[in-house]
């Protein structure tokens, strides 16, 4: 409402009332305006200082930017934490988060190395099996087809422990003495091979299967014990064939 206009008449008109009927009310309300002094009240010392200094620049925008920055930082930390907890960070960052959590926090973020091994365990298996096969060939060249019982054992063992690659030996198994040297070794696990291993095969003679028995180290025997039938059976059959080809 600008000066020069009569707010009282405006009020009456806006309300849809008859100006003539309300002339008395308008006159009475006009006297109200006499309580408005001509001069402002004397400012207090604090207000006088403010009026003398002019406007104080408010710090509100700075506080707002600080709040926004804090919010963004909190969101980033939260997102990083979630990513670290679900092992979704890049490997170096995940490793760093794991190390830090191991030392500082009461819980640990996943170790990317362990997870990688866990994921790649089954993938590495054929290579390991190949190594073992090579070893078996190497050993078996001079000692008969029975040496290749190990590949057969690995084939039987691998599906049983896909997520535990650490259980596999990382060093080549110590060559064991040939079977004839220990004829009286008790038959374990694949020891049933002689009866089951491809009896109709042309080279699946007793020597190959005997080699299977005799070559098994105690540790192999233990693993064979987990899956005695198939591993020994395949090993026996293959060893017989291979020993034939090699021979």
């Amino acid at each position: 409402m600008q000066e020069g206009r009569d707010p009282i008449r405006d009020m009456i008109a806006e309300s849809g009332l008859d100006a003539d009927d309300y002339a008395g009310v308008a006159d009475a309300l006009a006297t109200l305006r006499s309580v408005v002094p001509a001069d402002p009240p004397t400012p207090s010392a604090e207000l006088a200082a403010l009026l003398t200094a002019g406007t104080v620049v408010a710090l509100r925008p700075r506080r707002n930017s600080l709040a926004v920055a804090s919010g963004v930082t909190a969101a980033l930390v939260l997102a990083s934490g979630v990513a670290a907890a679900t092992n979704n960070l890049p490997d170096p960052l995940q490793r760093f988060a794991h190390d830090v959590s191991e030392k500082v926090l009461p819980f640990e973020f996943p170790d990317p190395d362990r997870h990688a091994q866990g994921r790649e365990g089954p993938v590495q298996l054929p290579e390991q099996a190949k190594n073992d096969t090579d070893q078996g060939k190497h050993v078996g060249k001079g000692e008969g087809g029975g040496k290749t019982a190990n590949p057969g054992s690995q084939e039987g063992k691998a599906p049983d422990k896909p997520g535990k690659p650490d259980a596999r030996p990382t060093t080549p198994p110590t060559p064991t003495p040939p079977a004839p040297d220990r004829p009286d070794k008790p038959v374990q696990g694949g020891g049933e091979d002689p009866g089951e291993g491809d009896p109709s095969g042309p080279g699946a003679g007793e020597q190959g299967d005997q080699g299977d028995q005799g070559e098994d180290s105690p540790s192999d025997a233990t693993t064979k014990g987990e899956d005695p039938g198939d591993g020994g059976n395949k090993g026996g059959g293959k060893s017989g064939d291979r020993s034939l080809r090699q021979g």
Binding site: P41, P43, S44, E46, L47, L50, L51, T55, V56, A58
Partner: peptide, 9 residues
């Protein structure tokens, strides 16, 4: 006075 102390800043 209080009103203008609040308004001027």
């Amino acid at each position: 006075n209080e009103v203008f102390l609040a308004v001027i800043p």
